[in-house]
């Protein structure tokens, strides 16, 4: 199958590559660009481990072809940290609140949470749970992920993080 030339912006840098039309975007990112922080956990668009940010949308990159991303602006987990290399508020929140264990769902979860907070800077717990319902985690039971996102929201909004009473 003839290959197609694609160009896109990934984590602020222009990238290009030759792909088959059927090349899944997640494989282009992981194998052509060697950005292996984006993971694959299923092939049926359920688990969300492959979630990235494309043109302001959270997208499961296992369900999109690389050719479809021509000209788009993508952020993967490798582009999330602050410019000075320090952890972003969400990354810090996940660490402080023990929002991860094996780490496999974490990149997708953080990318999704980042878009959620951009659209809804002060979500309720129910909104957070709904907002991350396209991402499976097998380790944490989600409770500390919710706290991690609340921590980040508070930090971004410049307010003190207060844990909800049980």
């Amino acid at each position: 199958m003839a290959k197609t030339h694609v160009t896109m912006k990934v984590n602020g840098a222009e990238v290009e590559g030759l792909v088959e039309p059927r090349t899944l975007l997640v494989h282009f990112i992981r194998e052509n660009l060697a950005l292996t922080g984006t993971h694959i956990g299923c092939e049926t668009t359920h688990c969300g481990a492959c979630t990235i940010d494309i043109d302001g949308m959270s997208v499961k990159s296992c369900t999109m072809f690389a050719v479809q991303a021509q000209g788009s602006d993508i952020m993967t987990i490798e582009g999330v940290a602050n410019a000075d290399g320090s952890l972003s508020a969400l990354q810090e929140g996940f660490r402080m609140m023990h929002g991860l264990q094996c780490g496999f769902c974490t990149p997708g979860m953080i990318l999704r949470a980042q878009r959620l907070l951009k659209e809804n800077p002060a979500p309720t717990e129910a909104e957070i749970r709904m907002g991350i319902s396209g991402n499976f985690c097998r380790c944490t039971g989600y409770q500390n992920i919710v706290r991690a996102i609340q921590y980040a929201a508070a930090k971004i909004n410049g307010v003190e993080f207060q844990e909800a009473a049980e």
Binding site: L35, T36, G37, T38, T76, I77, E78, V80, A81, L87, Q91, F94, R95, M96, H98, L100, G103, T106, P107, I110
Partner: peptide, 11 residues
């Protein structure tokens, strides 16, 4: 806080 999280949160 976990040592592992520094790398896992950054992919």
């Amino acid at each position: 806080k976990r040592v592992e999280d520094i790398r896992f949160t950054q992919g």
